[in-house]
Design a protein around this nucleic acid. Structure first.
Length: 871
RNA sequence: GCCCCCUUGAUGGAAUUGGUAGACAUACAAGACUUAAAAUCUUGAGUCCUCUGGGCGUGCCGGUUCGAGUCCGGCAGGGGGCACCA
């Protein structure tokens, strides 16, 4: 018998059209069933999807389709993170308007996503660059402002003098602008900030409740928030300018309070600035500090520099104990109070500084059982290490851990009123101002008389002007002839619009909430709907967003709650970070890279050799790396879908590699997936003529063969279900491979001359096969569903319940160990009593032989697991 | 420097979370079918030995346990995050 090959190119568009026509993936907010919200991080419309998208969206689609098959009202939307610099860069290069470029890219990528057969509700599509989206964002900005969650303040920024824009830290490479190559300057600019630090403690504490997030992401956020607890106290000042009576300091090591030999302030400290007014030497030193680079290499190698102010500080514990006050280049203004207490013995930076400026070194503690004093390496033991304290506020010669001493010291200092317990965070407020055109305008008007005036709600949205020029660097909005000129809403006099736009991370901090009711024209959300559909039950995306996007979204959701737009704190109940798609690299003789499409690979025994297609030039097979244009190791999803079909691409993305690890894209792997698709089609085609009509129920008095088949079907149903539930798609797929083999044996043998009971079992078994394949390879599954005589769409079909009774058998085969080594097997009734099992085991020849006449000391029987005989 | 994670055949990985290590897949080899190739099907394979059996084996060393890939301590290698954060 011959079967036509499964033709994905014919079948896939056909089913996609049908799904579309019947709108089966459209979600109703008032559906009475339990909701399940699946979301993948929405893409930036760069123009083409890449393999990383294919992997991300395939995983999300498997979750969405399987939850739908399990009876949930699934929300699975898609949109576009559409603001950002690439659109402006394209505008400069190609003289196209950013909007034109962006919307053309959206159209192209939407077509690509549709070709993947994703079960998305396109009726909820949003683009963040659309005024119908960003007007709500502007409204929330004003709400946040009213709630005290937004503030305007001066801050230091990276300024690119050529492009005339602020650069994010990531855009500064070796101290130069990533586009212009110009040396980046530090500038003080007035910027808008979201006060994320107001929520620092809450954002930290709530991480403990996110038990469906990867530990890695939670740890990264914990470190980023960077809570530290310590002592805040005031130094007295002697000889300081008027107005400076005390100097507040924060330290996390109160146990070292009896070991300082100097104090230091940041070059940006108000006191340093005050000194600079009268002392040119201070001015020169501060300037020198500012000229120092901020790149990693420069910081690593930078010498500790200090300027002795001549001022003395007095120790809080003893007014007669004075220390010199320096201005030091390594003290940061924006952490703690911008001033430090220098304890050289137990801080390497302080020690370097002390040695350079000939300051004393006082040992506070020494290693237990030693009297070794610090020389050129500071003694900085772990908090849990035990040391002997020789110079501290507690009992002399105490032996304890640093952590314990820190706690005791803090208690004493606080009790005696020398200082207060204080918590500091590494987390900074979120600066959102960008000197860019293609972003959400900040809805503020600056009036010379009224000051900072919010745009009235009725005037929203503040729309970007369409007529815009990109002929010069800098912010085109600021240069626009008319846009920024506006009447003050309060006094009516001439005023000026804010020309900065918002960081694009703002756009992506609430899109998941907007998806719940994107049709609401009057408000960002419909709280009743948002509170029903949120939080996102399963969010999937790249680990590169583990900190910023996820932390900003967590903050934004809290701010939305505070302003009445949603009712929850946490937007994502379940989070999953998927691995990258990686590929071999190929290097030609001249050192340049070749793309996979240009390469011919031949097996040479166990080795593989690559040549340039159409030539004899051998190509070096290089390391496996993340797909990137520069390494030319990308594979175009369009090509793969065109050649093999979407199902093959989807199947390959799910198999082999665990989803949180990198997957190696290989031609062999794709072909393996493609072979599987054909194999399933052949199997189902061969079985179809032998299957009784849909709905045929397995007879009560099923024979052994029929029961065995049903057992396999329900075991697979159970395994695949839990595999998907735990997002372990690779193991779910392995079970499906095994199941297909089982069914192949059935088709090759018993099914040809089946009893009614067996045929009925086979009907059930094939229904289950197709149902389980549907989330992964939906087009093939639809084709198979029709082939086995089912009406309707498998995409809409429900999975049967697992019959638990079929998962346990009457007889069990247990491995038998003698002294921990496997020697035999024993088959017993599943509910056999332990003494019966022991007797059966001891009767085994292999056990007797392995015991070699030694008496049995003990038998461990783990019911339904294993037996171990100890001799 | 600080914090976190990983290490299992030729390769990607599996292992009911302390209970038969190597499922499933890829690659490889042999065979069947074919004029041939592809496709398909069958078979083989951790390693060593004195081979109907047995020893050894999850990066290395040690420990806990009847039993360890899994738990504990130490070491090595690889990866990631943060970083002049007091």
């Amino acid at each position: 018998m011959t079967t036509e090959r499964y033709n994905a190119r014919d079948a896939e568009p056909r089913w996609q059209r049908l799904w579309d026509e019947q709108a089966i993936f459209t979600t109703k907010n008032d559906d009475p069933r339990a909701k399940y919200y699946v979301l993948e991080m929405f893409p930036y419309p760069s123009g083409r999807i890449h393999m990383g998208h294919v992997r991300n969206y395939t995983m999300g689609d498997v979750v969405a389709r399987s939850m739908r098959a399990r009876g949930y009202n699934v929300l699975h939307p898609m949109g576009w993170d559409a603001f950002g610099m690439p659109a402006e860069n394209a505008a400069m290069q190609n003289k196209t308007h950013p909007a034109t470029w962006t919307y053309a890219n959206i159209a192209a990528m939407k077509k690509q996503l549709k070709s993947m057969g994703l079960s998305l509700d396109w009726s909820r599509e949003i683009a963040t660059c659309d005024p119908s989206y960003y007007k709500h964002q502007q409204r929330m900005f004003l709400d946040f402002l009213g709630a005290g969650l937004v503030e305007r303040k001066q801050s230091k920024v990276n300024w690119d003098p050529v492009d005339q824009t602020v650069l994010a830290n990531e855009q500064v490479i070796d101290g130069r602008g990533w586009r212009s190559g110009a040396l980046v300057e530090q500038r003080e600019l007035t910027q808008w900030f979201f006060k994320i630090t107001d929520y620092a403690q809450d954002l930290l504490d709530a991480l403990d409740t996110l038990d469906r997030w990867p530990d890695k992401v939670r740890t990264m956020q914990r470190n980023w928030i960077g809570r530290s607890e310590g002592l805040r106290f005031d130094f007295g000042l002697v000889g300081a300018p008027r107005g400076f009576d005390t100097l507040p300091v924060f330290t996390t090591r109160p146990d070292t309070m009896y070991g300082p030999t100097f104090a230091a302030i940041s070059p940006d400290h108000p006191l340093a600035k005050a000194l600079a007014d009268t002392n040119p030497g201070v001015t020169a030193f501060i300037d020198e500090c500012h000229r120092m680079g901020t790149s990693q290499a420069e910081i690593d190698t930078a010498e500790k520099l200090g300027f002795d102010t001549g001022i003395k500080v007095t120790h809080p514990a003893d007014k007669d104990w004075t220390l010199p006050l320096f201005i030091a280049n390594f003290v940061l203004m924006d952490y703690g109070t911008g001033a430090i207490i220098g304890c050289p013995a137990h801080d390497q930076r302080d020690l370097d500084f002390a040695r350079k400026y000939n300051l004393d070194v006082i040992d506070v503690f020494v290693p237990e059982g030693s009297d070794e004093r610090v020389k050129n390496v500071a003694f900085v033991p772990a908090k849990t290490d035990t040391v002997r304290y020789v110079q501290w506020v507690g009992t002399p010669d105490s032996v304890m851990t640093c952590g314990e001493a820190m706690k005791q010291s803090l208690d004493i200092f606080v009790k005696d009123g020398w200082g207060t317990r204080e918590v500091n965070f590494r987390l900074r407020d979120w600066g959102i101002s960008r000197q860019r055109y293609w972003g959400c305008p900040i809805p503020i008007i600056h009036c010379e008389i009224c000051g900072v005036v919010p745009v009235p709600a009725k005037d929203l949205p503040v729309k970007l002007p369409d007529d815009i020029e990109f002929d010069r660097p800098g912010n085109p909005l600021d240069r626009h002839a008319t846009w920024k000129h506006v009447a003050c809403p309060q006094c009516g006099k001439d005023a000026r619009r804010e020309t900065d736009t918002m960081d694009t991370f703002v756009d992506s901090s609430w899109y998941f909430a907007r998806f719940t009711d994107p049709w609401n024209d009057n408000a960002p959300t419909t709280p009743k709907v948002a509170n029903h559909m949120m939080p996102v039950d399963q969010y999937i995306g790249g680990v590169e967003h583990a900190i910023l996007h996820l932390l900003y979204s967590r903050f934004f959701t809290r701010a939305m709650k505070a302003t009445g737009h949603v009712g929850m704190d946490e937007p994502f109940a379940g989070m999953f970070t998927q691995g990258m798609v990686v590929h071999e690299t190929y290097r030609k003789q001249d050192g340049s890279f070749a793309s996979p499409a240009e390469i011919d690979i031949v097996a040479d025994g166990d080795a593989r050799r690559a040549t340039l297609i159409g030539t004899t030039e051998t190509v070096e097979i290089g390391p496996i790396e993340k797909m990137s244009k520069s390494k030319r190791n990308t594979v175009d999803p369009d090509d793969i879908i065109g050649t093999y079909g979407a199902d093959t691409a989807r199947w390959f993305m799910l198999s082999d590699s665990p989803p949180d690890r990198d997957v190696i894209w290989s031609e062999d792997g794709v072909q393996g997936a493609s072979r599987f698709v054909q194999r399933v089609w052949r199997l189902v085609s061969a079985a179809a003529p032998h299957l009784p009509p849909p709905g045929t129920i397995s007879a009560q008095e099923a024979d052994d063969a029929a029961t065995a088949l049903r057992r396999a079907a329900h075991q697979t149903l159970s395994d695949v279900l839990t595999g998907i539930e735990r997002l372990r798609f690779n193991t779910a797929i392995a079970k499906l491979y095994t199941y297909v083999s089982t069914l192949q044996d059935a088709v090759d043998g018993p099914l040809k001359s089946a009893t009614p009971a067996y045929a009925a079992a086979a009907r059930e078994a094939f229904d289950i096969l197709v149902l389980l394949l549907a989330p992964m390879v939906p087009h093939l599954a639809e084709e198979c569903w029709a082939a086995i005589g089912q009406n309707g769409l498998v995409s809409e079909a429900q999975w049967p319940a697992v019959e638990a009774g079929l998962l346990v058998s009457e007889q069990m085969t247990l491995p038998v160990q003698v002294n921990g080594k496997r020697r035999a097997e024993v088959t017993v009734a599943r509910n056999a009593e332990i003494p019966q099992i022991e007797a059966a085991v001891l009767a085994l020849d292999a056990v007797k032989q392995a015991l070699d006449g030694k008496p049995v000391r003990k038998i461990i029987v783990v019911p339904q697991r294993i037996v171990n005989v100890v001799g």
